[in-house]
Nucleic acid binder design. Structure first.
Length: 759
DNA sequence: TGTTGGAAAATTTTT
DNA sequence: TTTTCCAACA
């Protein structure tokens, strides 16, 4: 490419950003403070690589959410588009970029670790004996499976109380993601389960087995098997060969397993770029460790570190305050953020008598800003826990102020949506026990027992049909073929389309012979109960259709399920009308997808959130106030930010003050919230708050102002009483406390065996 | 199977 | 307070 268009690309960057964008192949760590143009830098780097002639389909861009991936690729696209037009203007043909620059961003591999893992496993899984038609258990399915096994092992009935299934899941998940043995994880994070370690091991081992026989993967498996794929000599090499460049966003929120995956993907760090801010590490509850970013240079000795400190988001008075908050942290990459933006008002600390006054003052302030011309959607209310916004939501609804909440109840977690999706999942994978059980129990007169019996019949049929077609434990010849296919020089899109249906084919092929279709096992059964008689035949027909060779397009499959499910829904749940509308919504949503497996995976890995519940009728201009948990606010920015419930017990959360590092994380979370603001920042501090553990009617007494705002930090705020103007008296009052191996062939069995040895 | 009551435990953030 | 688990019953 000629020099000038590249110059155009780099023009808007500052010196440091430019350094990062133009950096060559060596491992690169970009330490990017809040608001320092991290996303822009990463997007520029991707665009730069493409403009220089890198093949976009050989670039892997790992982000934290799908939303982040989409945003990043949108920016890459717009940069390239701009570049293209510059060239046209100068009527200079592109020499170094063989592909049309437009649409190049579509070819980049972008997504979360989990989503990318899913894609790679569908492509290469066979090489380690993984049937690519696996379905994904979401968190609650995985918990339910653990619950079943917990009962099966007789752990539920013991005289001592065994940990709840959700706790079991947490422990299991931490072991996998942090790569810690059970004892260690339990000792450090779940000490009250110390006596149950032996039984937990048994439980986890069985859990691994069952997922295997059912062809299901939970979230952790996606990463674990990606890791396994990379440990396999052949498949690992094939996966490594796919990518020239690997870029990772939000590196501070990756866990040990993910760090290992990266290292196996680029053993010497060649082509590896990670971006993150240790000051914004807030996902340790998901086993993320800030050590990854702190130790990156040690892991990849030739690392270049670029630190971005110029903040483009906030005004200087806001930065002074946020810098002071984070300065208390002990170990960090030292950064002093500064802004070229002049002027601006100081942040405000608003002291309220109680939650009602907080709500009142907040809404007044929001409306005031809107009067002054700031749309609601440029203002956001942030809080520690999802339920902290409840009172506010009710009041907003009452006053007809539209809002949208992020991080609340999710659409796909509502029972009826889940039910419907479960039909599809069962059609996709008849071995999926949790899916089958859920579907069958919808029938009147069918409980766990009968459901289990019917699933066993189905399962035996599937297994026996597989014996006729040796499927798992693929022969060398077969896995070699799979690798060869995956490496065919087509774009990733084309491959995915051709691969996924083929895997599902394996199961459905049996259907042509009619008798051996898995569903024929059900066809032969009498209705499981008298009450279910009316539905049984229809269910068998439905599953034979959507689980057969010609299921029809996705929307029509959902339509078929709806026809069957609607009467059951009306029997099972109240509020049937609204629920049926949701299902219709889902059918529309599905029209955008043609591949069922991908649809299910996307919904499981990044479910859309559900917000209409309490929101008032949408205004004409579709303006709405943003409500978000602090976690979900990561990476976003607004002109005005309101942080509510900023009192000890909520920030830091009562539940996270056990250990010093937990308090540090709460501080970073608070910091993330504060640094979302561009021009105005309000921190609301209710003196009285209601504390959940005791009771809703029990006033917890005078709250202690969050320990993250000691006097010298408070002095950077304007302190005022919610009722009136700020006074020196208020200021003083606020300060007062009240109260692997990388060699040789690896099979799925190997991974499981190793895993079980682990337990 | 499906419902009910009582006792005990957990209580946040989310791929 | 709410959720979850379990045992006893219809």
């Amino acid at each position: 490419m000629t020099g000038r268009p590249l110059e155009t690309l780099l023009r808007d960057l500052n010196e440091k950003q430019r350094l990062a964008v133009e950096h060559g192949e060596g491992p690169l760590l970009i330490v990017a403070g809040a608001g320092t143009g991290k996303t822009a830098t990463l997007a520029h780097r991707v665009a730069y690589l493409i403009a220089q002639g890198s093949d976009p389909s050989r670039i892997l861009l790992l982000t934290f959410t799908r939303r982040a991936a989409a945003e990043m690729l949108r920016r890459v696209d717009s940069l390239l588009r701009h570049l293209g037009s510059v060239e046209r203007d100068e009527s200079r043909p592109t020499s170094a970029a063989p592909l049309p620059l437009r649409q190049a961003s579509n070819r980049v591999w972008g997504g979360t670790f989990h989503a990318v893992a899913t894609r790679l496993l569908r492509l290469h899984g066979r090489a380690i004996g993984l049937d690519p038609s696996f379905t994904i258990l979401d968190r609650s399915d995985a918990e339910d499976l653990l619950g079943v096994l917990r009962t099966e092992l007789g752990l539920a009935k013991s005289d001592r109380r065994f940990p709840l299934k959700s706790t079991c899941m947490d422990i299991y998940s931490r072991c996998i993601n942090a790569r810690e043995p059970v004892e260690e994880a339990v000792e450090n994070y779940f000490p009250w389960c110390r006596d149950d370690v032996g039984d937990l091991r048994k439980l986890f081992s069985l859990y691994v087995d069952r997922k295997g026989t059912q062809g299901v993967l939970d979230y952790d498996d996606l990463l674990l098997y990606w890791h396994g794929l990379l440990s396999d000599a052949r498949a690992g090499a094939a996966v490594r060969r796919r990518f020239d460049w690997v870029l990772v966003d939000e590196y501070q929120d990756t866990n040990a397993l993910q760090a290992e995956i990266l290292q196996m993907l680029t053993p010497d760090g060649k082509g590896l770029t990670v971006v993150g801010d240790d000051a914004q590490a807030i996902y340790s509850f998901r086993a993320a460790t800030v050590r990854n970013i702190l130790d990156f240079p040690a892991r990849f000795p030739s690392t270049t570190i670029v630190t971005l400190e110029q903040n483009y988001r906030s005004t200087q008075p806001l930065l002074r305050a946020t810098n002071a908050v984070i300065a208390e942290t002990s170990e960090r990459y030292a950064k002093e953020l500064w802004s070229a933006r002049g002027g601006g008002t100081r942040p405000q600390l608003v002291i309220c008598q109680d939650e009602d006054e907080q709500t009142e003052a907040l809404i007044r302030q929001v409306l005031e800003h809107r009067e002054a011309g700031l749309a609601l959607r440029r203002q956001a209310v942030l809080f520690r826990a999802s339920h902290h916004s409840l009172a506010l939501e009710l009041e907003l609804a009452r006053r007809n102020i539209p809002f949208r909440k992020y991080g609340g109840l999710r659409f796909v977690e509502t029972a009826h949506v889940k039910d419907l999706l479960t039909f599809l999942r069962l059609a996709e994978n008849p071995r999926d026990l949790m899916a089958g059980t859920r579907v069958l129990m919808l029938l009147p007169g069918v409980g766990p027992k009968k459901a289990r019996a019917l699933m066993d019949r189905l399962g035996s049929r599937v297994v026996s049909s597989e014996r006729m077609h040796p499927e798992p434990a693929a022969s060398d010849r077969e896995s070699a073929a799979a690798v060869a296919r995956a490496e065919a020089p087509a774009g990733p899109e084309a491959e995915d389309e051709s691969e996924a249906p083929e895997s599902a084919e394996a199961l459905r092929a049996v259907d042509t012979r009619g008798e051996s279709s898995p569903w024929s096992a059900w066809r032969a059964c009498p209705p499981p109960s008298a009450a279910a008689a009316a539905h049984w035949r229809d269910l068998v027909e439905l599953m034979s259709l959507i689980g057969g060779r010609r299921p029809g397009d996705l929307a029509s499959q959902i339509h078929q399920v709806r026809l069957f499910y609607a009467p059951l829904l009306e029997r099972l749940y109240d509020n049937a009308r609204a629920r049926l509308l949701d299902l219709q919504q889902l059918e529309y949503l599905a029209a955008r997808f043609n591949d069922r497996a991908r649809f299910l995976a996307e919904l499981a890995l990044d479910p859309p959130s559900y917000s209409e519940d309490f929101a008032g009728p949408p205004l004409l201009d579709e303006d709405f106030l943003i409500l978000s948990t602090m976690h979900s606010a990561k990476g976003l920015e607004w002109d005005v930010v309101y942080v509510i419930h900023a009192a000890d017990g909520n920030i830091p959360s009562d539940l996270a003050t056990g250990r010093a590092d937990e308090i540090e994380e709460e501080r970073r979370l608070f910091y993330v919230a504060l640094t979302r603001a561009k021009d105005w920042l309000y921190v609301f501090y209710p003196l009285r708050y209601y504390s959940y553990p005791r009771s809703f009617s029990d006033v917890h007494g005078y709250a202690q102002l969050t320990r993250f705002l000691p006097p010298h930090v408070q002095s950077l705020f304007d302190v005022r009483q919610a009722g009136g103007p700020a006074t020196a008296d208020d200021a003083s009052r606020a300060g007062q406390p009240g109260k692997a191996s990388t060699e040789g062939q690896v099979t799925l069995e190997d991974i499981r065996r190793r895993l079980k040895a682990f337990f």
